[in-house]
Simulated scan of single mutants.
Amino acid sequence: MLLGVFRLAIVALEVIALIGNFRYVLGFRTFATANFFSYFTIQSAFLAVITLAIAAGFALTAPRDPAWLGILRTCVTVYVVLSGIVFAIIVAESSSHGYRVDVPWSDTLLHFVVPALAVIAWSVDSVLGVNPPVPWSTVGWVLPFPFGWLIYTLIRGADVGWYPYFFLDEAQVGSVLGVVVACAIVLAIFLALTASFVAINRWLWRRARDRRARPKRSPDPTAARVGSPALRR
């Protein structure tokens, strides 16, 4: 029950962050709706809303989540966490590229607060060990969405002359090779982060299983008799 409510709370916070961020960027003269929805952060946030809403439904109505939901939640958690990491790097590196990146409250929610809460929600599942363990195949399942997004972004960027992240723009990184290297690094981080999540989940799940399998100690009747007033007399 509480787990379902917690998941719904994250959904509500993510929706608030998305609405707030959309309202914030409306104030820019260069704002374009298509550009806003082309950010990986925004798309992964929508995925998080859908996934956590489904997960909340299962937590409130079923004894455990289905195995496929564990895979999906792990992938989406990786997406939002990596979005936060990339955003933090962009903010830190923006001055060296000749521009400033402001961080309004909506970006703070989107890139830092919600990812942290998503990790907590994901970790609680792992610690409780009620749901099936996340399989190693999740490491492969994490890639289709980023690959699809990358192909879409590169094709659209070449057409409209705009990229959501500077490391995808050949003009900003200096060469096609620079873009390829940046993409390879990000994809490698996807794989490494997902593998870490799966390993942690399976380790915590085994610990939870062992705790449940450990027999409970029953009171020793002999010790009780020895300590009784009648025997002491």
Score class of each variant (00 low, 15 high):
Phe22Leu: 14
Ile185Trp: 12
Thr108Ile: 08
Pro215Gly: 04
Pro133Phe: 05
Leu47Pro: 00
Phe31Thr: 12
Leu143Ser: 02
Ile10Lys: 04
Arg232Ile: 11
Asp107Phe: 13
Leu168Ala: 09
Val142Asp: 03
Leu69Cys: 06
Val134Cys: 07
Phe22Ala: 13
Ala158Cys: 14
Tyr79Leu: 09
Val124Leu: 13
Ala171Glu: 08
Arg100Phe: 15
Phe40Cys: 05
Leu150Cys: 07
Gly27Gln: 01
Ile189Pro: 00
Thr41Glu: 00
Ala195Lys: 05
Tyr39Arg: 06
Asp220His: 01
Ala9Asp: 01
Trp122Asp: 08
Ala88Pro: 01
Val11Ala: 01
Ala188Arg: 11
His111Val: 02
Trp149Glu: 04
Phe145Val: 13
Leu82Pro: 00
Thr138Leu: 07
Tyr152Cys: 11
Arg225Tyr: 00
Pro115Ile: 12
Thr51Val: 07
Phe87Asp: 01
Leu231Ala: 12
Val91Gly: 04
Gly227Leu: 15
Ala224Trp: 11
Val86Lys: 08
Ala184Trp: 10
Ile185Met: 08
Leu18Met: 01
Phe6Asn: 11
Thr77Gly: 15
Ala199Asp: 09
Leu13Asn: 03
Leu168Glu: 03
Gly27Trp: 06
Tyr163Glu: 04
Ser137Glu: 11
Ala208Thr: 03
Thr194Arg: 10
Ser83Tyr: 02
Ala48Gly: 13
Ser228Phe: 05
Leu143Tyr: 11
Val180Gln: 01
Ala34Tyr: 03
Leu177Arg: 12
Asp65Pro: 06
Val139Cys: 10
Thr33His: 08
Pro229Phe: 02
Ala158Gln: 15
Arg64Ile: 06
Pro215Tyr: 01
Thr222Phe: 15
Val5Glu: 07
Ser137Cys: 07
Val80Leu: 06
Phe31Val: 13
Trp136Val: 12
Ala224Asp: 12
Leu13Lys: 05
Trp205Thr: 14
Phe190Gln: 13
Ile151Met: 13
Ser175Thr: 07
Ile10Arg: 02
Ala199Pro: 03
Ala188Leu: 09
Val81Arg: 03
Asp210Arg: 15
Val127Met: 12
Phe145Thr: 08
Val119Lys: 00
Ala158Pro: 05
Arg156Tyr: 02
Leu168Phe: 13
Ala48Met: 13
Lys216Trp: 00
Ala224Pro: 00
Glu93Cys: 09
Ser137Asn: 07
Asn201Ser: 08
Pro144His: 01
Thr222Met: 14
Ala53Lys: 02
Thr51Gly: 06
Ala48Trp: 00
Leu2Ala: 06
Ala92Trp: 08
Ala17Thr: 02
Ala12Asp: 02
Pro146Phe: 10
Cys75Phe: 00
Ala34Met: 12
Val179Met: 07
Leu109Glu: 04
Gly178Ser: 05
Pro104Thr: 02
Val173Asp: 01
Tyr152Arg: 14
Phe167Lys: 12
His111Pro: 04
Gly98Thr: 09
Phe37Ile: 05
Phe31His: 13
Trp149Cys: 06
Pro219Ile: 07
Val114Trp: 00
Thr61Met: 02
Ala213Val: 03
Leu177Glu: 00
Val81Tyr: 12
Gly129Asp: 10
Pro133His: 10
Leu18Gly: 00
Gly157Cys: 09
Arg209Leu: 06
Val80Gly: 00
Ala182Ile: 10
Val181Met: 04
Arg64Ser: 15
Leu18Asn: 01
Thr61Trp: 12
Arg23His: 10
Gln172Asn: 05
Val5Ser: 09
Tyr99Thr: 08
Asp220Ser: 08
Leu154Trp: 02
Phe145Leu: 08
Tyr99Leu: 14
Ala184Phe: 03
Leu177Gly: 14
